[in-house]
């Protein structure tokens, strides 16, 4: 595949699916530096994956799978120490939108961040409307196992939301 063609596909994928990458960034990385680092890893892997894309799955599924796999392996690595000076001088890849996040959405992201890496992935997929079958294929475990995990996640989130509402935070 020619680099120009790969670049064209990459730009179009990014334009159409950046929303899902941002969700993964918000769920897995806490600081702007970490988000920048993770975004770079995901973007590089998406780029590399283009020649291997065989249209056996939807582009959304493909990019979600890459993003979650990278996010999980990224979170297992020891975080490198970032030199504050270098952050200021380096050109930033992403900047946060000024639009304030809905308070309840911010709470939801915080709750997702508290989960373990696997449950975080499942919650994102669940909230984005993926079926158990699709999730099972992406994660590599059985549908029934997915069902058990999802049930537990839903129950836990509902319980925590009751606490959140009671405290009126």
């Amino acid at each position: 595949m020619k680099e120009s063609e790969q670049q064209k596909i990459f730009s179009s994928w990014l334009a159409d699916h950046k929303g899902l990458i941002f969700k993964v960034l918000r769920a897995y990385a806490s600081t702007p530096e970490d988000r920048e680092d993770l975004f770079q890893e995901i973007a590089a892997q998406v780029w590399r994956s283009i020649p291997n894309f065989r249209r056996e799955s939807a582009v959304t599924t493909w990019i979600y799978r890459i993003s979650l796999n990278i996010a999980i392996s990224w979170s297992t690595k020891e975080k490198r120490k970032v030199n504050p000076q270098s952050i200021d001088t380096v050109e930033h890849l992403i900047s946060e939108n000024d639009t304030p996040l809905d308070e309840r959405l911010a709470w939801l992201y915080e709750e997702i961040k508290k989960m373990n890496e696997v449950d975080r992935s499942l919650t994102l997929l669940l909230l984005d409307g993926f079926s158990y079958k699709e999730m099972a294929e992406m994660i590599g475990i059985s549908e029934s196992n997915i069902g058990v995990k999802i049930h537990r996640i839903k129950r836990e989130l509902t319980k925590r939301s009751a606490k959140y509402q009671n405290h009126g935070v």
Binding site: K18, Q40, A44, I94, S95, E96, N97, L101, D128, L157
Partner: peptide
């Protein structure tokens, strides 16, 4: 929660610097 989640679809949380990204990739 699902409804709250769906609302964000049209709101972009971040803005990408495409040129810097291309160079880094």
């Amino acid at each position: 929660m699902q409804k709250i989640w769906d609302k964000q679809r049209n709101e972009m949380l971040f803005v990408i610097n495409e040129e810097a990204l291309h160079n880094r990739v």
